[in-house]
Simulated assay, not measured.
Amino acid sequence: MPSFRAVLQITGLRPGNPPERVMQAAQDALASRHLVEATSLDVVRGIPQVTLRFLVEGASDDDEAAQARESALAMHDAVEEVATTGVLRVLRRRRGKWLPV
């Protein structure tokens, strides 16, 4: 099964939402579609970002990439309910490297 990463910048919390709700919203949204293998919260150049690694059911490369993008957008929408966000990136693992989809 192909491995993908969704990386989403977090620029702020919406009122009434604790910080841990951000990762939970992201994970719930992706886990409803795919197996989530790992999650992390990092600060890159002063901007927090969540990263979720997930597997997509095998198909053609284009279909796999489309599924990954669609799922990452669903994750983005779920996180937007609890936080404000910045850039969303979707990456695919190929020959030991993470490449943009």
Rank of each mutant, 00 (worst) to 15 (best):
E20R: 11
P19S: 05
D61I: 10
R53W: 00
Q67D: 14
P15H: 10
R69D: 09
H34T: 01
L35C: 00
R21W: 05
N17E: 11
I10S: 11
V43E: 13
S3T: 13
T51Y: 03
A6I: 02
G12K: 12
A25V: 07
L73N: 04
D42S: 10
R69M: 12
V36A: 09
G46W: 03
L35P: 04
L73D: 13
Q24N: 13
R21A: 15
S60M: 09
G16A: 06
E37K: 11
V36S: 01
E37Y: 00
Q49N: 05
D28C: 03
S60P: 08
A72T: 02
V36T: 05
S3R: 15
T51F: 02
G16N: 03
G46E: 00
I10F: 07
D42F: 01
E20G: 13
L55Y: 01
V56P: 13
R53K: 00
Q67I: 00
A68W: 05
L13C: 06
G58S: 14
S60R: 14
A29N: 04
A72V: 04
S60Q: 13
V7T: 11
Q67N: 15
A66S: 14
V43Q: 12
L52I: 01
A65I: 04
P2E: 14
I47L: 10
A29F: 02
V50F: 02
S60N: 11
Q49E: 09
D61Y: 11
P48W: 02
D28E: 14
A26N: 02
D42N: 12
L13Y: 09
V36Q: 10
M23P: 09
V36P: 08
L52C: 00
A6E: 08
A26Q: 05
V36M: 04
L35S: 10
E57Y: 09
I10P: 09
A68E: 04
R5G: 03
L30D: 04
V22W: 06
R14P: 08
L41D: 11
A25F: 02
E70D: 14
D63T: 14
V44H: 08
A66K: 15
A59S: 15
A65F: 08
D61A: 15
D62F: 15
I47Q: 15
L35D: 12
P19Q: 06
F54R: 07
E37T: 03
G16C: 03
R14V: 09
G16K: 04
L13F: 07
V7S: 13
Q49A: 01
Q24A: 15
E64F: 12
L55N: 07
E37R: 06
S40M: 06
A38T: 00
A25R: 12
V43S: 14
D63K: 15
A6C: 12
